[in-house]
Simulated scan of single mutants.
Amino acid sequence: MGLLSNRVGRGSLKPGDHIYSWRAAYIYAHHGIYVGDDKVIHFTRRGQEVGTGTMLDLVLMSSGPNRGHIPCPTCTLTEEGHGVVSSCLDCFLAGGVLYRFEYAVNPALFLAKARGGTCTLAVSDPDDIVVHRANYLLDNGFGCYNVFKNNCEDFAIYCKTGLLLADQNAMGRSGQAVSIIGAPLSAVLSTPLRLVTTNVYGMAATAVGVYCASRYAGDIGMRRDVLKMSVEDLTRRLETGALQVAEPSLAALLSPTPVS
């Protein structure tokens, strides 16, 4: 593992690894759990890697991998079912480069990796527990896919840590989602500070500082609104409707929360 890249070779993979691969133009990365035997379990939106139900899908889908018309002889991605699928490593990578997500990184390394969705301060559970969670969710599902609150990275992070958000209305565990929201948020929050400095470099430094602070505070390893939940309890609550994932709009997520 290096400061600039988490790229790894296939030979270094072991069951329980959280892996990902960037898609075209590095717009987003697709995440999953490697479970051995060249298999990856990952979370999709009815077979599609991404999806918001909005016009944003035109950008996201256009950056996705071009899948051939010849079915893979070892795995099948279906548009039916609950969205958790098992694929061979080749289908998961879709021609992309293999990267391994890092856990229990120190704060300096976390902040040095300015792009979200590559590492976390949180500690991973043992590999056998990670594989058990992934296989259990393959059979029972992980709820409704939501690009901002319950996406492929959220799935992989849950498998690795067993952590869920206590507040179902909050932003998900995904570092990618936090980065997407954190960038405009940093611009908004830094605007009042124009009264402190009119220097463009000072404003840029302030915006970067706010962005880094939002990423750090939003990381699953730093948040206090999380709880540890067994995969059996998770699926039981999903079945009974005790846990649900809403479909928030992008505008709602970017709107500032009133302070009382």
Rank of each mutant, 00 (worst) to 15 (best):
M1I: 15
L3H: 09
S5T: 15
G11D: 14
S12C: 05
L13G: 00
I19F: 05
Y20E: 04
S21T: 15
Y28C: 02
D38Q: 07
Q48S: 09
P65D: 09
G68M: 12
H69R: 12
I70K: 09
P73Y: 09
T74Q: 05
C75F: 11
T76P: 00
E79V: 06
G81P: 05
S87M: 13
F92V: 08
Y103V: 11
L109Y: 08
G116L: 10
A122T: 10
D125R: 14
D128M: 06
R133V: 15
R133M: 11
L138V: 12
N140T: 09
G141W: 12
G141S: 06
F148H: 03
E153R: 02
D154T: 12
C159M: 08
G162M: 06
G162V: 11
L164M: 14
L164H: 05
A166R: 13
N169G: 05
G172L: 10
R173Q: 10
S174V: 07
A177F: 05
I180E: 01
V188C: 02
S190G: 14
T197Q: 04
V200S: 08
G209V: 10
A213V: 12
D219G: 00
D219W: 13
V226S: 01
M229S: 03
S230V: 10
D233W: 04
T240D: 01
G241H: 04
G241W: 09
V245A: 01
P258E: 12
V259E: 07
